[in-house]
């Protein structure tokens, strides 16, 4: 059992075990910090979505809370003009490469992106940037779900769960830069891959990239 420490988040005193990552301490205490790529059980931190920034007293610039171990006396603010600006830009960038069709989307109402928008007062549209082209083809080869890359935010949760919980390893990241995608070996449809259609990835997906087929 590791040492218990006390820290302050948004003025609230909170007890946590030393070394635990700030993001989880906050979430478990009912303090919301936007996040998409974090997986608590994963030791190899992704830190790729760049949404969970917070201000920590004594640190010069905002830091990602998913990578920050908590320590005694730490003073954290989840909001500040600098944090809000970074989160707003990262969020708008993600939306600029996303098929935005909330009203007809199967995840409408249960989407993590919508949750971030609601919590932080952000608009679900792209204003400053130009919407980029996205992959329009949808992989509907599995019987129970579909894979729509145009709604993928590259958080990597599906890959992690496929590998570590389902123990299958049907999907992974491939290519790089703007072309980085979640794909199967050789880009074959999921039904032709080792995928067992266990559906764990669908549960893990924060948006509607992997979604149940509507009955």
């Amino acid at each position: 059992m590791s040492k218990m420490i006390t820290l302050t988040i948004d003025g609230r005193k909170i007890t946590a075990s030393e070394g635990e990552k700030l993001l989880w301490v906050a979430l478990e205490n009912g303090i919301y910090i936007p996040n998409l790529c974090a997986i608590k059980e994963n030791n190899r931190l992704s830190a790729s979505c760049r949404l969970c920034f917070v201000e920590v007293e004594g640190l010069a610039a905002p830091v990602t809370s998913c990578t920050l171990p908590v320590s005694e006396g730490m003073v954290v603010k989840t909001r500040s003009p600098r944090v809000d600006r970074l989160v707003q830009t990262a969020f708008e960038l993600l939306l600029s490469h996303h098929r935005l069709e909330c009203s007809s989307c199967s995840k409408n109402g249960s989407c993590e992106l919508q949750k971030i928008a609601k919590e932080r007062g952000l608009k679900l549209r792209v204003k400053r940037f130009k919407p980029l082209d996205y992959e329009t083809e949808v992989d509907d080869s599995p019987k129970t779900f579909v894979f729509d890359r145009s709604k993928c935010v590259l958080c990597g949760r599906c890959i992690w769960i496929c590998r570590n919980i389902a123990k299958v390893g049907a999907i992974g990241f491939s290519r790089r830069g703007l072309e980085r995608v979640v794909s199967t070996f050789g880009d074959v449809p999921l039904a032709e891959s080792p995928c067992t259609e266990c559906g764990l990835c669908v549960e893990a997906c924060p948006g509607a990239a992997l979604a149940r087929v509507q009955a």
Binding site: S48, C49, R50, T89, K130, L154, R176, G177, L178, R180
Partner: peptide
Amino acid sequence: TQHESCGKCTFCRLGTRQ
């Protein structure tokens, strides 16, 4: 940079493209 970005994080992947 855009061509050589690894594509992992949001700012570099999409920000440099914008």
